[in-house]
Design a protein around this nucleic acid. Structure first.
Lengths: 197, 197
DNA sequence: CCGTCAGGTTAACGCTCGCTAACGTCCCTG
DNA sequence: CAGGGACGTTAGCGAGCGTTAACCTGACGG
């Protein structure tokens, strides 16, 4: 009822291009005229779709955090093969996101501070819930890991999984599935080491 | 002869504050007046010490990359207890940097694209050398790891080690030395997993 | 056939920013 | 004690920014 899911509307088109540009040159480094040009209209035409430049960034960041959290919750709900499988599932989901939506991942931990207070609070809350989801999952697999340490480990693993966008060129990456497997192994290895005495 | 090393000169003072501000609100988000105010002089007074705002960022980023590389090279040169100890030494050095100079680490992988072409090329070259240093050290410990995979692993571990600055507040961190030990274990665990069949 | 509305356009505004110019002041040195 | 350099200051410029205003056009329902 609320929103259709079929054709990519102009709003979404704008958001995609804005995300790309913001990730490339930073929020303040991109002008509205550029964003407009990227979708074939020019400058102020964007204001038919968004209240302002800030609103675009806000919608992007809230969207990302929400999407990550929703995906995580779904995986938790669908978990039927034990804690190990759940943790693997969470890792897999995050890797997919990091590899397929590099721009969004980049924005996610780079431009958070450019948001209005209320939006930033919201995003941080979504992020926190997502982290807690992981912490619980990790501690199910490694009960001996105290919570504070688990949280640091989860944050660190996020840093690890989000590292691919920082590679200057996606070249030298040994293929998508190989990279995904590699990252998965690295993440599991890190968690295992965190729990080991 | 060239430069003394004793008292923190005004230049260094400016660089420190600029780093803090850039890390907090992004390069484009900080005005020269703010940087000036942070060191007690105002706005254009900075131009007695730097050619421009860009020059400050350039000097910061080149300095960081150079410092990391120099430290890494020193550790390689001093390595006398085998590959394992060298890798541990590299990890330890990087952790020290990440924990003690959070602002710089943040800038290092966030504002690189705001540099003039020549400066960016230089920084990237230093970064690349630093990575190669690590790749070699890792492959000494895990010879079965092919180079492409080792490089991905090294990048990922950098992301892991650099994750602490992203923690909203340094609170909830279980103390500096505990955090350092944790990160060290995570990094070693990741490498070990990368090499495991 | 008319009215409306979504989705564009261009012009222009006000503000902020990086930077320069012109000027002042202290201190050190010959 | 003259003079000059190091290090500030304030005033102001020119450009670029996000945003608004006013206007245009084509599609469509009654």
């Amino acid at each position: 009822m609320a929103t259709r899911t079929d054709a990519p509307t102009r709003r979404e088109q704008i958001l995609r291009e804005a995300a790309r540009l913001f990730a490339e040159r930073g929020f303040h480094g991109v002008g509205v005229d550029e964003i407009g040009a990227a979708v074939g209209i020019s400058g102020p035409g964007l204001y038919r779709h968004f209240a302002g430049k800030d609103a675009m960034l806000a919608e992007l960041l809230v969207g990302i955090s929400g999407q990550l959290l929703t995906g995580g919750k779904r995986r938790v709900a669908e978990a039927e093969h034990g804690p190990e499988a759940l943790l693997d599932s969470l890792i897999e989901g995050h890797i997919d996101f990091a590899l397929d939506d590099r721009d969004l991942i980049t924005l996610h931990d780079r431009e958070l501070d450019r948001l209005r207070d209320s939006d930033r609070k919201l995003v941080r809350q979504l992020q926190r819930q997502y982290v807690e989801l992981w912490v619980e999952a990790v501690r199910k697999v490694y009960p001996e890991l105290v919570e504070a340490h688990a949280r640091v480990a989860v944050h660190a693993v996020f840093g690890l999984l989000n590292s691919t966008p920082h590679l200057s060129r996606p070249s030298s990456l040994p293929g998508r599935t190989a990279t995904a497997r590699m990252l998965h192994k690295l993440a599991r290895g890190a968690f295992a080491a965190a729990a080991a005495e």
